[in-house]
Nucleic acid binder design. Structure first.
Length: 423
RNA sequence: GGAGAGGUGGCAGAGCGGCUGAAUGCGCCACAUUGCUAAUGUGGUGUCCCUUCACGGGGACCCCGGGUUCGAAUCCCGGCCUCUCCGCCA
């Protein structure tokens, strides 16, 4: 959420930002409502002040005079009530609009309509050139009885799967490596709920707007399954005023991620690329309200992911996501796309975002600075490793001619020292 | 799931329906005093909105949302959460 004062002072910047993101946003209506709310609240405050004065006079008056004085206040009470009703309906409309105002993208976010306009920043590692016909992760999975998509679908519907044997172990190995790597960098490991209140989804910017992408409980429980651990981690300290001394907070958590993938029918229907449930290790940073530090963190969390990919010997590229492909909350986002031979291209595996105070403002996540002032935090996050897409990349990039798969060195300790799977 | 208790400022903990944005203690900050530290004394110590060039002024907030009342932290209803006991269970 943007500061209403900021919108009031810089309406053109907000409008231009929304246009760059291709997100419709009626800034003028917001400004109009803001004017009305402020004018009305002045009236209401004056009436309340009057009412308080009258209350004091009544309490000071002799008991026999009180009924008459109280009677005289009834008209004011009625007017106040009417004003408050108008006030709350205006505020309700204003709030609903404010929740949908997109964060203003950074200047170096490229212009563009969709992911086709994202700008490649760098490529690291060369896609493998095979001396044989490479197999897809699906073929490799079936060949070794590692992957059961038919039964996954029978259990849980389309876009579900079962990992078996060494592939199940490999999943755990990648996740553990990811967590351990981040802990070694000083991140605090968390184990967090994946079922959260709707309020938490709103606070992190997924709602309103992303309802179709989330699984929600029925009306008995006001709970949603998260699509990423970003949600519970970022919201961990919602509603708090943190001691500035304890910042930055760096967290890492592995969680199951649930995605409805509404509107993707017919897209990436085969294999593990687009599924309803997977495991992911996520890194989140909460820090003071400082642009320079935010930028540093953004580079750091991007680097953390790149280092992991390099250690796993996976070729990837980094793209600067364009305006039209950015979500509502982000200031800027860098995606990492890892080479996937079966796609004959790069597939998104990581997404590093910075939000400025957008999420913190919605969450009521603040801190007290050295000067004693209370400010909203800055938040950032990035993937460390998402299970299924990492498995695709590992199987397909490191496959051998006989269908076995080479295990990159950092994963071996988690697989009993094995250098090749199966084996 | 059944029965009870409770949610007040950084923490602990008072609070008759008006004089309570809130006693008191601890913590914290400033100043004073003392070789240093400790101890002691004095003062200060919430968040947010509107308004003002400024000094200042007005308002909201005692878990959240409704209600009663001229007036609610205080009474009533609903929700959320915590604790105790019983039941059930990984």
């Amino acid at each position: 959420m943007l500061d209403l004062k900021y919108i009031r002072q810089h309406p053109e910047i907000v409008k231009a930002g929304a246009a760059k993101k291709r997100i419709p946003c009626d800034v003028d209506r917001i400004l109009e409502l803001d004017r009305q709310v402020r004018a009305l609240s002045q009236e209401i405050d004056a009436m309340r002040s009057q009412q308080k004065e009258a209350g004091k006079r009544i309490s000071a008056a002799p008991p026999e005079e009180r009924p008459a004085l109280a009677e005289a206040q009834k008209e004011l009470k009625a007017r106040l009530k009417e004003g408050e009703a108008r006030d709350s309906s205006l505020r309700e409309e204003l709030e609903a609009l404010l929740l949908r105002v997109p964060n203003v993208p950074a200047d170096d976010v490229p212009d563009g309509d969709d992911d086709g306009d994202n700008v490649e920043l760098r490529r690291v590692g060369d896609p493998p050139s095979f001396s044989f016909a490479p197999r897809s992760h699906i073929e490799l999975g079936q060949m070794h009885d590692w992957l059961d998509i038919e039964r996954g679908a029978r259990l849980a519907g389309s876009r579900n799967y079962v990992l078996k044997g060494d592939l199940a172990l490999l999943e755990n190995a990648v996740l553990r490596l990811a967590v351990d790597t981040m802990v070694a960098k000083g991140f605090t490991p968390l184990s967090v709920p994946t079922l959260v209140r709707t309020e938490t989804m709103v606070g992190t910017g997924y709602f309103p707007g992303g309802e179709d992408q989330a699984y929600r409980c029925d009306e008995r429980d006001d709970l949603c399954l998260v699509g990423t651990a970003e949600v519970p981690i970022t919201a961990l300290h919602q509603g708090e005023i943190l001691d500035g001394e304890c910042l930055p907070l760096r967290f890492v958590a592995q969680s199951t991620c649930y995605r409805r993938e509404a509107g993707t029918y017919g897209k990436d229907t085969k294999g593990l690329y687009r599924v309803h449930q997977f495991q992911k290790v996520e890194q989140v940073i909460l820090d003071v309200n400082d642009e320079a530090r935010s930028l540093e963190h953004h580079q750091a969390i991007l680097r953390n992911a790149e280092e992991l990919l390099q250690a796993l010997e996976l070729p990837y590229r980094v793209v600067n996501v364009c305006g039209g492909d950015l979500g509502q909350p982000q200031i800027q986002k860098f995606d990492i796309e890892t080479w996937m031979p079966s796609r004959e291209g790069y597939g998104e595996t990581h997404s590093a975002s910075r939000f400025h105070e957008f999420q913190a403002r919605r969450l009521g996540l603040r801190y007290r600075g050295e000067d004693g002032k209370v400010r909203f935090c800055h938040t950032l996050n990035n993937t460390v490793a998402a299970s299924t897409r990492m498995l695709i990349a590992l199987l397909e990039n490191h496959q051998l001619e006989d269908g076995r798969v080479r295990v990159p060195a950092p994963l071996r300790p988690y697989l009993g020292g094995r250098e090749v799977l199966p084996g």
